[in-house]
Write a protein that binds this DNA or RNA. Structure first.
Length: 299
DNA sequence: AACCAGGCTGCGC
DNA sequence: GCGCAGCATGGT
């Protein structure tokens, strides 16, 4: 049978290669698979799992449905998922204008041209991932995530290859702390993940609930009310999942390192200089953070 | 081998 | 309110 292929026109200031480069960093990612020119990812749309293959084709992004038969609504949801993941609907022109006006950062306009803020559309996944990543090196964090995903997530098989889905909150809510401890989660991380899974499973928290709140502050407060979610985690999740333009993972080690590398600060304590920088990027705070993170990786 | 990892909580002042 | 130990273990 012929595979279904759908197209999304590339927006201006978009580079598939830059986005792929970000996805293909050296980490042991278990939720998608990259080949030369394609990223494949399993996506769940209300109870049904699909496998997407995403490539670029001339002026379009081509999305091939490798597994599953979406109905009309699911097809729309899948295309929306891709658009959301790659942040395709944002006009980056104002951001590039601000970038080019900044002496230390202007080079990013050409160096990272067309890089989009790659998101984590699933809020539950974003929160779990940021809790896993707290205070440990990323290599180890990816290892922890893989163990959890392989043990409790659903999967699809295509072409003799397994594609994992992030575990459902209902599944993780049933876990005992000891089960995650066995995977080398710390006691606290295990508790936090299970608590958050419960909050999602019983409907106390969801992306929709959070989106309905009136302000960034309200959303931050709703998240930090949960144990294990501090301001860093709240802002990280808001930036990657709700795409809050102005959320900054304050105090983030990588962010501070990048600011030092660029000579914007000399010491990690120079909070005034950091505030001054973000003031210049008002409305684009999360984007500049993402680009600064990008600058940390070696070509 | 010490020191740092995409921090957070709970305690003592 | 602010500072700080403790968390648990892998990387460098």
């Amino acid at each position: 049978m012929k595979k279904q292929i759908y197209y999304i026109p590339k927006p201006a200031l978009f580079s598939f290669g830059e986005c792929m480069w970000f996805l293909d960093r050296r980490f042991d990612e278990c939720l998608y698979r990259i080949s030369k020119s394609e990223v494949r990812k399993a996506v769940m749309i209300n109870e049904d799992a699909f496998l997407l293959g995403i490539t670029e084709k001339d002026k379009d992004i081509a999305i091939t449905i490798l597994c599953g038969k979406p109905d009309a609504l699911q097809r729309i949801a899948l295309l929306n998922y891709v658009a959301d993941w790659f942040d395709l609907s944002k006009d980056l022109a104002p951001f590039y204008k601000l970038l080019s006006a900044n002496k230390q950062l202007a080079y990013m306009c050409s160096e990272f041209n067309g890089l989009r803020l790659i998101g984590i559309p699933d809020l539950f996944e974003a929160l779990c991932w940021s809790i896993i990543g707290q205070q440990i090196n990323l290599t180890f964090a990816y290892k922890l995530k893989r163990r959890m995903v392989e043990a409790y997530g659903q999967q699809l098989v295509y072409d003799d290859t397994v594609y994992h889905l992030f575990p459902e909150p209902e599944r993780l809510a049933r876990l005992a702390v000891s089960e995650l401890r066995a995977m080398q989660f710390s006691e606290k991380k295990a508790e936090y993940v299970i608590t958050i899974a419960e909050a999602f499973a019983n409907g106390r928290l969801s992306k929709e609930i959070l989106q309905a709140l009136p302000s960034l502050e309200a959303r931050q407060k709703a998240l930090t009310a949960l144990k294990g979610i501090g301001i860093w985690t709240a802002n990280y999740a808001l930036m990657k999942s709700l795409r809050e333009p102005a959320s900054i993972p304050q105090g983030d080690v990588g962010l501070l390192n990048a600011l030092e590398n660029h000579g914007i600060i000399k010491a990690r304590t120079e909070t005034e200089k950091i505030e001054r920088l973000f003031k210049k990027f008002k409305g684009w705070e999360s984007y500049i953070v993402f680009y600064l993170w990008r600058s940390l990786a070696k070509k």
